[in-house]
């Protein structure tokens, strides 16, 4: 088992982290960098709670070997705000009750951000498809769909 120095950019900050071959991106974020906003619900890629953006693409960070993303740029829930102002999705989720226990919320927000970046005006069906990899056990998803659509409308200036 060899150690490597991983160089990654997380939420705009550059980090160098000593990692083993097996260390996952989720472990690096939560344990090495203290970014506990990203959650783990299964550690085997089934629940979506650990979703983060790597080079603007959503990935399940529990399944990503940290070495694979050497040199990449990573965005987590802590990095969604811009200049201290919450992302429209963060505000809409809070406002419409899209978070109950809140545990799936960070991963859900990241998937939703990725969805809106690709499709600024999704239908409810498209939101459902976009969030299909993120499990929520509290809300029945309905208020999450509403919040994503509200944020999208506000983003389009409506």
């Amino acid at each position: 088992m060899a150690d490597h120095i991983l160089a990654i950019d997380v939420n705009g900050d550059r980090h160098r982290v000593l990692v083993t071959d097996q260390r996952t991106l989720l472990e690096v974020l939560r344990e090495d960098l203290g970014l506990t906003g990203t959650k783990h619900g299964c550690d085997v890629g089934e629940c979506g709670a650990c979703t983060v953006l790597v080079d603007d693409k959503p990935v399940l960070s529990c399944l990503v070997i940290a070495r694979q993303v050497d040199g990449s740029s990573v965005q987590t829930v802590e990095g969604l705000a811009h200049d201290g102002k919450p992302d429209l999705l963060q505000e809409a989720f809070a406002e419409l009750g899209a978070a109950q226990c809140g545990y799936c919320t960070p991963g859900m927000l990241i998937s939703a951000r990725s969805l809106l970046d690709d499709n600024p005006d999704p239908t409810t069906e498209e939101v459902q498809a976009g969030l299909a990899g993120n499990l929520c056990r509290c809300t029945g998803y309905i208020k999450i769909f509403d919040a994503v659509r509200l944020a999208a409308a506000r983003d389009r200036g409506l």
């Binding site: 809070a94 009750g97 809140g102």
Partner: peptide, 12 residues
């Protein structure tokens, strides 16, 4: 909204 909703959505 929940009184803690912004903490939840900010990952805090």
């Amino acid at each position: 909204p929940r009184v803690d909703s912004m903490d939840q959505t900010m990952g805090k």
